[in-house]
Simulated assay, not measured.
Amino acid sequence: MSTGPNAPAGFPGAGVGEMTYVYAVGHEGPALDGLAARLPGVDGRPLRPVGGGGLCALVSAVPADTFSERGLTAQMEDLDRLEAVARAHHAVVDAAFAETSVLPMRLATVYLDDARVADMLVRQCSEFRELLGRLEGHVELGMKVYADPRAAAASAPATPASAGAGAGRAYLRQRQAQQRDSQDAYRSASDLAARAARLADGVAASRAVHRPQQGRLAASRPGVNVANEAYLVPREHTEQLRRELSALAEDVPGVFVEVTGPWAPYSFATAVTAESAGGGGPR
């Protein structure tokens, strides 16, 4: 595989009006070369390998107008388009991770051309090799904790009405009970998130705390996302930790736990240098 600034003129890099989109970085070799030959990238564009410093980046060409800084801003504001790009990106990363250890790049990481990608690999090869060694044999588990005050209220015993109580007083008692249920649900969710962190501490090699999700991104569960964390877990302990985390909320009214993965270790791969034109979208 011949890439980089001195690649021959026939090398199929990004063409006029195109940029180079980077999905993942791994060790140079047949695993990623073979994957590039059979898997499409964003918008169905063919993948290709770009090498440098003994490493390989999986890349594809993308239109410069839609992946420039202005074009990316517009795409990130269109949730349907963002979802389509994210699905294609993650499909490449997941397929690569199934073949070999890779560092997932952030969503919409783009360079002006293949030569700049190859140069980045050479300059950061020591850092990338160290990361690949640290992540070898590990996967990422995601863990979200949700508080749902309505579910907590539904499971609480009904507040008995006092004889002769007026409608206004009954309404006030109802509102006070709802507030207590809400406070209890959020407190229980926070306590459970702390228990989850302690549970994972004895197994996970590392922990990442993300901002809780809101709106459409948190639509997978009712209630409010109180905690959003990720754990870097040895493969052999993945299923045990998944079961233990999932069981934490079984007897906690109004609190739900969602465990996802195993994934490629997105939360534990270093972001690429600021020279790339693109940034990451929400997780």
Rank of each mutant, 00 (worst) to 15 (best):
M1V: 13
P5V: 14
N6P: 04
G15T: 04
G15E: 09
E18W: 00
A24G: 06
E28K: 10
L35V: 13
A36T: 10
R38T: 15
G41Q: 06
V42R: 09
P46N: 07
L47E: 07
G51R: 13
G51H: 15
G54A: 04
C56W: 00
L58N: 02
S60L: 00
V62K: 07
D65G: 02
D65W: 01
L72W: 08
E77T: 10
D78V: 00
L79F: 04
R87A: 13
H90C: 08
D94L: 00
A98K: 07
L103A: 03
M105L: 15
R106H: 14
T109H: 13
V110D: 02
Y111S: 07
A115I: 06
V117N: 04
V122R: 12
L131E: 09
G133A: 06
R134Q: 13
L135T: 04
K144P: 08
R150W: 00
A154Y: 08
S155W: 01
S155L: 15
A158V: 14
T159I: 13
Q174R: 07
D181A: 02
A189C: 12
D191S: 12
A197T: 09
L199C: 07
A200H: 02
A204I: 00
S206W: 01
R211S: 11
R216S: 08
L217W: 11
L217Q: 15
A218G: 12
V224Y: 03
Y231P: 00
L241G: 03
R242C: 05
D251T: 06
E258G: 07
E258K: 12
T260R: 00
A264H: 01
P265F: 01
F268Y: 01
F268A: 04
T270R: 14
A271R: 10
T273A: 15
